[in-house]
Design a protein around this nucleic acid. Structure first.
Lengths: 185, 185
DNA sequence: GTCTATACAGCGATAGAC
DNA sequence: GTCTATCGCTGTATAGAC
């Protein structure tokens, strides 16, 4: 029962932060849904920000894995395509979809949060590591947008009446298409 | 001097909302910077949300113009390219760059705000109006992402040491390239 | 270890004096 | 148009019950 309360706080917090926004969600709401007073939360987390930090820890670890892998590879078109597929795989895990939505929707509130800076830095590093320093800006931007397509793609297709599997497949193949340009690089 | 106060509130609010976030910016801060008490703001605006609504009015009018134009055109590749260029032109106006940054960074806080719903609806309508209903989802998603590239492109290139003109030109040409696929549609 | 009770400064918003 | 005073709420913090 010990770590259970902590996990439940994380679960409720992530859901409410995503639905209502970080600042708009009060600790009283979280505590109420858990059936305790808000002061009880302070035993498990030092501050409200601390809850956010704990949520992002796993994601940062995954980004680091991907970065380490990417840097150990030659910068070939095959490596780039492989990275996109690995990245897509991470995003498709249910727990990171929720976190991803939360992070996208709360960029400003959390901009100066150290944990958020860490995640954004890694995201940009991943995008940059797809290219050589002497690649033209245009190519580097296109590759960054390919990575972003995996994020925004599933959101933009939510208005269409297709299955989750189709959604993913379309976002994935479109990201790959954008990655290396009109007729490959 | 009468409408001057109102305009100054808008100016200060937009800057602070963008820098710190909507929820994180208090009416006291805005009032203090203007040299009045926060209660004075309530003479000019009914609520805090009302300030946001007033900021977005011009942008919605522009979106409507663009939508009306698009719907009067045949759905040809030329029309699509022309829309992207007109859209880019709107974004490049200084006052809408500020508003755009503010909106991007406060999606969650403002999600249920009627004015924000109006803007998002129009954004999706624009993206949809680029395609026919019987175009495959993949094609429709690609055209939406082309539109988004104009938004995210200038942000992603801020890390590179290039001029604002170059930034725009690259985002523009990349959006055009993505718009109609590897070898045209 | 886990929580309740309580307090505090700051928030958006309102009422009413000037 | 702007003020003071006040309301119920928030995040944060601490003291102490069990």
């Amino acid at each position: 029962m010990r770590e259970d309360t902590r996990a439940k706080i994380q679960e409720i917090a992530l859901r409410l932060f995503t639905e209502q926004g970080y600042e708009a969600t009060s600790l009283r709401e979280i505590a109420e849904e858990l059936g305790v007073t808000k002061a009880a939360l302070y035993y498990h987390f030092k501050t409200k920000d601390d809850i956010v930090a704990s949520l992002a820890e796993d994601r940062i670890a995954e980004q680091d894995e991907l970065l380490a892998w990417l840097r150990a590879q030659p910068k070939t078109p095959e490596t780039r395509r492989e990275l996109l597929l690995r990245y897509a795989e991470q995003l498709e895990q249910a727990r990171h979809q929720d976190l991803g939505r939360f992070l996208e929707r709360n960029q400003t509130s959390l901009r100066d949060h150290p944990t958020m800076k860490a995640m954004r830095t890694r995201m940009l590093e991943l995008a940059e590591a797809l290219s050589d320093p002497d690649d033209p800006v245009r190519v580097r931007l296109r590759r960054s947008i390919a990575l972003f397509t995996l994020h925004t793609g599933s959101w933009l297709t939510q208005q269409y009446d297709i299955s989750e599997t189709e959604r993913r497949e379309i976002a994935r193949s479109l990201a790959l298409e954008i990655l290396d340009g009109p007729c490959g690089d």
